[in-house]
Every structure is written in C-alpha cells, then in structure tokens.
C-alpha cells in the first residue's frame, strides 16, 4: 500500500517536473527568437554555424541518401515487377523520398550528427563557465552563442533534406535504370507526371523546416539546461538524440495528416 502510494507520488512529481521543464523550454525558445535580430545583423556568426551544422553533415547526408535511394530502387523493382508495372519505379522512389524519407531520415541523421554536437558544445561551454564568463563581460550568451546556432541549423536543415532526396533519386535511377534496365524515359516521365512541385516538393521542404526548428530547439535547450558536469553533458547529449528523434516522427505524423490528406 505504502509502496503504491510512493510510486504514485513519484509519477506525479515526474509529471509536474516535465511540465515545468516544458515551460522553461518555451521561455528559452522565446528568448532565442527575441535575440535573433541581433544575430542577423552579425550574419558571419550564422555563417559559421551553417558551416558546422550543415557543411559538416554533408557527407553523411549524401552517402545515406544515395544508399536509401538504391535500396528503394531494388525493393521497389521487386514489388512492382509482380504487378508488371516496373515503369512506375520512378514514381515510387521519388514520391517516397520527397514526401517522407527525405525530410524524416535527413532530420534523424541531422539530430544525431549536428544536434548532439550542439548539445555537447553548449553543455561544455556551460560546464567550463564560458557562458558565465560571457555574461560577466556583458555579452548575452543567448544572443551571441545560442541564437546563431539556432538559425544556422534551421537554415541548413531544408538544404540537407533536399540534397538527401536528390541523392536518393539518383540512387534509385542508378539501380533501376542503369543496373536493372527499367526504361529511362518511362522512369523520368512517370515521375514527372506524378510528382507535383507544390504538393509534394514544397511540402517536403516545409516539413524539413519544421523538423529543423524542433531538433535545434531541443538540442540547444538540452545543452543550456544540462547539469554542468561531464556526466550531465553526456546524458543531455543522449537525451537530445532520443527526444528529437521522437519529436521528428510525431511531428511527421501530424504534418502528413494535414498535408497529404487528399482533396
């Protein structure tokens, strides 16, 4: 009886604690937006962050995109062949990449590559009192350190997702057309007939922007909120990857339900 009561109390405390954290996170997010004007006036700070979030994630994104596209080509061909419609391979590869896999897989990779790096970096800056030192020099760390990272990553995310999709379609083309020998004309023309720029491509880009905001906000908050110890930072890094992956998948469901419900 007592044990039950205790565990109930524990659950209650945890719920309250997480709601509390949610509130702090929201305030932090608003603070970033408030301080953003300053970082846009000093754009070279954002450029640096585009480099470390975007350019440094380029290789993993391109290579994964190519492989995902190649697998889609193989699997799609196997399935479509049984219905005698191999020409639809282009449609299958392009639609699944542009609508879903591009934004989602690129965001998941981005969370584990750039998101965790952001958390670790901010957490370490906090643990080694660099943020406190900045504050003592009358420089707001949110404006100088956090906001540029936010915008650098948010700008990088849709670019990475588009590159992932493009690379994937090339991978599908390589396997489908060059290796297996699906008719090249049918591959591209069916794709073009089925993929709509506004409905599919732009909605995919929009998705990746939303994912970019979510991943970066989570990564920055976890870093900023991490206990200033080695263990605290490493836990925060793990939490960033877990939380932002879940956030990506949940947001993807919501966005898909809104975007592609059909007319």
């Amino acid at each position: 009886m007592n044990g039950l009561l205790d565990s109930l109390r524990g659950i209650g405390a945890r719920v309250i604690d997480s709601i509390w954290r949610m509130g702090v996170a929201t305030r932090f997010f608003l603070m970033i937006l408030l301080q953003s004007g300053q970082s846009f006036r000093r754009f070279h700070l954002i450029i640096r962050e585009i480099y470390s979030a975007g350019v440094l994630s380029l290789i993993i994104i391109l290579v994964s995109g190519l492989f995902v596209g190649m697998v889609l080509g193989l699997q799609g061909y196997e399935t479509l062949q049984t219905y005698g419609s191999e020409e639809a391979l282009g449609v299958l590869v392009a639609l699944s990449l542009v609508r879903e896999l591009g934004p989602v897989v690129a965001a998941l990779l981005f969370a584990s590559r750039a998101g965790s790096a952001i958390t670790a970096e901010i957490g370490l800056m906090k643990a080694t009192e660099q943020l406190a030192a900045m504050e003592m020099m009358a420089v707001d760390p949110v404006a100088r350190v956090v906001a540029p990272r936010f915008w650098g990553a948010v700008i990088s995310m849709p670019i990475l997702a588009a590159l992932f999709s493009a690379m994937g379609i090339l991978g599908g083309y390589l396997v489908g057309v060059v290796l297996i020998g699906v008719d090249e004309g049918a591959f591209w023309s069916q794709m073009q007939a089925a993929v709509d720029f506004r409905e599919d491509v732009l909605n995919g880009v929009l998705k990746s922007v939303v994912f970019g905001v979510a991943v970066t906000a989570i990564a920055l908050f976890e870093g900023y909120d991490a206990p200033p110890t080695a263990e605290g930072v490493s836990r925060a890094t793990t939490r960033t990857v877990v939380t932002s992956s879940l956030a990506i998948l949940a947001l993807d469901f919501i966005l898909t339900a809104f975007m592609f419900r059909g007319v």
């Binding site: 080694t128 660099q130 030192a133 020099m137 420089v139 100088r144």
Partner: peptide, 29 residues
C-alpha cells in the same frame, strides 16, 4: 559589467577561439 573584469577558476577561455580572439572578444563585442 563593462567596468568589471572577472577571472574564473579555470580561466573559462572560449575553447573555439585562439588566444588572440579570446582577448579581442570583449573589444570586438
């Protein structure tokens, strides 16, 4: 605070900047 300087326990230098940029930081800001 612009009229205060503070030396933290282990220096708290910005690890992503060179010594020069560290010292230049408050001047540039």
């Amino acid at each position: 605070r612009r009229r205060m300087g503070m030396l933290f326990q282990f220096g708290a230098l910005f690890t992503d900047m060179s010594v020069f940029d560290n010292v230049a930081f408050p001047l540039r800001e």
